[in-house]
Computed example of a mutant assay.
Amino acid sequence: MPQNHVFVFLEIFSCEGGIQSYVKDILRTYSQIDTLSADIFLLRDRASVGNPFASERSRFHYCKDRSPRLGRVKLAIALFTHLLKHRPDRVFCGHILLAPLIQTLCKPLGIPYTVLTYGKEVWEPLPSGKQRALQNADRVWAISRYSCDRACAANGIEPNKVDFLFCAVDGSVFQPQAKDSELLRKYQLDNCKVLMTVARLWSGDPYKGVDVTIRALPQILRVFPDVKYLVIGRGDDQPRLAKLAEDLGVSDRVVFAGFVAAEELPKHYCLADAYVMPSQEGFGIVYLEAMACGVPVLSGDADGSADPLQDGRLGWRVPHRDPDEVAIACIEMLKGEDQRCAAEWLRQESLAAFGKPAFVQRLKELTGL
């Protein structure tokens, strides 16, 4: 008889991001395993036509309401009713914001629950209610060793109750290809060495490293005068970043591409000679996407990127707010002499650890299959 699981998420379809990508990988894997059955409750999503994950074994329950408060009430009632009637084998709490509700409903019924964690939302001490919900969870999933360490230290979680489910990349989607001539013309990148970042440009989280990379450009230009920096993403921090480039005299070297649809990302990655994001990430799926395309990568050295970059074996890790160190690493990457610039080796090594088959196998292990 299939294991019956319940997932509760904030949203999957109403916005895009690293968390949503990770969640979709989990649901996609579930749909491929005959011995698993799941009910998925969504707080902020409405029923969507053509949901690719919906099936007889993956049933979706949408709780969005015009009033956020009523939406939360609707979720609580629907979930409690389902738990009473079906007594699932386990509930997976998809965000720390939902953890107090899950604890309240599951503990009296004796239903074990797992809390999924991603990054910064659990790196600092949480309010007491959320902290208790984490501490009382039967298991906690983390996407990186760094996030696990930070969450455990800040919130009193026993490390032995934490399991790792790292992010994954689809090597059949992200793969090396020739630079697209139309995109080269569109962004005026012909005959240029190209640095690239894919990131949300949000003033509330300015530490993706775009500003640091812009500050590094004058030094890089002294060695590679033909370099350009392609920034993919949108957000309210773009005017500040554009002003910084202007103040440093490198505005003609920085190209803000704006939003790029997910299906267009692989050929954008392949425009790059180096992927540069000296950031603080819970994990950093973008590093895997770049490496699967054969593009060398640079990350910060104090975050979850240690896992996709395998502690520096697959890429450059530098102090994330240091333009000088970023410049030095970028110059090495653009020279292309290091093993970490070997496109086929880079792709092979990253997919071996973080390709979709490895993700499926790990999820089977965590669900006891």
Rank of each mutant, 00 (worst) to 15 (best):
residue 48 S to H: 11
residue 50 G to I: 03
residue 50 G to A: 06
residue 50 G to D: 12
residue 52 P to G: 06
residue 53 F to Y: 13
residue 53 F to T: 06
residue 53 F to E: 08
residue 56 E to T: 12
residue 56 E to C: 10
residue 56 E to D: 15
residue 57 R to V: 12
residue 57 R to K: 15
residue 58 S to M: 14
residue 58 S to C: 15
residue 59 R to P: 10
residue 60 F to A: 04
residue 60 F to H: 09
residue 60 F to D: 03
residue 62 Y to C: 11
residue 65 D to C: 09
residue 65 D to P: 05
residue 65 D to G: 06
residue 68 P to N: 05
residue 69 R to Y: 14
residue 70 L to G: 09
residue 72 R to K: 12
residue 73 V to A: 12
residue 74 K to Q: 07
residue 75 L to Q: 02
residue 76 A to C: 11
residue 78 A to F: 11
residue 78 A to Q: 15
residue 79 L to S: 06
residue 79 L to M: 08
residue 80 F to W: 14
residue 83 L to E: 01
residue 83 L to V: 09
residue 84 L to T: 07
residue 84 L to C: 10
residue 85 K to P: 06
residue 85 K to E: 11
residue 86 H to Q: 13
residue 86 H to G: 08
residue 86 H to T: 14
residue 87 R to V: 15
residue 89 D to L: 13
residue 89 D to N: 15
residue 90 R to K: 12
residue 91 V to A: 07
residue 91 V to Y: 04
residue 93 C to T: 12
residue 95 H to R: 07
residue 97 L to W: 12
residue 98 L to M: 07
residue 99 A to M: 08
residue 100 P to S: 00
residue 101 L to P: 01
residue 101 L to M: 02
residue 102 I to E: 02
residue 102 I to N: 01
residue 102 I to Q: 03
residue 103 Q to N: 14
residue 105 L to N: 02
residue 106 C to Q: 01
residue 108 P to Y: 05
residue 109 L to G: 03
residue 109 L to K: 00
residue 111 I to G: 07
residue 113 Y to Q: 00
residue 113 Y to R: 00
residue 115 V to E: 03
residue 115 V to L: 07
residue 117 T to F: 04
residue 117 T to G: 03
residue 118 Y to T: 10
residue 118 Y to H: 15
residue 119 G to P: 08
residue 120 K to L: 12
residue 120 K to E: 13
residue 121 E to Y: 02
residue 122 V to A: 10
residue 123 W to Y: 04
residue 123 W to K: 00
residue 125 P to R: 03
residue 126 L to E: 02
residue 127 P to G: 05
residue 127 P to Q: 04
residue 127 P to L: 06
residue 128 S to H: 12
residue 129 G to Y: 11
residue 130 K to F: 10
residue 132 R to H: 10
residue 133 A to P: 00
residue 133 A to I: 08
residue 133 A to N: 05
residue 134 L to T: 02
residue 134 L to G: 01
residue 136 N to Q: 15
residue 138 D to N: 13
residue 144 S to Q: 04
residue 146 Y to I: 03
residue 147 S to I: 00
residue 151 A to F: 00
residue 153 A to W: 02
residue 153 A to K: 08
residue 154 A to S: 06
residue 154 A to K: 02
residue 155 N to A: 10
residue 156 G to K: 03
residue 157 I to R: 02
residue 158 E to W: 13
residue 159 P to K: 04
residue 159 P to C: 09
residue 160 N to A: 14
residue 162 V to A: 01
residue 162 V to E: 01
residue 162 V to H: 00
residue 162 V to S: 02
residue 165 L to Q: 15
residue 165 L to I: 11
residue 166 F to A: 08
residue 166 F to S: 11
residue 167 C to K: 09
residue 168 A to M: 05
residue 169 V to L: 00
residue 169 V to T: 04
residue 171 G to T: 05
residue 172 S to L: 12
residue 172 S to H: 15
residue 172 S to I: 10
residue 172 S to M: 11
residue 173 V to T: 14
residue 173 V to P: 07
residue 173 V to K: 15
residue 174 F to V: 08
residue 175 Q to L: 12
residue 177 Q to I: 10
residue 177 Q to A: 14
residue 177 Q to W: 08
residue 179 K to G: 04
residue 179 K to S: 09
residue 180 D to A: 09
residue 180 D to E: 04
residue 181 S to L: 12
residue 182 E to M: 11
residue 182 E to K: 06
residue 183 L to E: 03
residue 184 L to I: 05
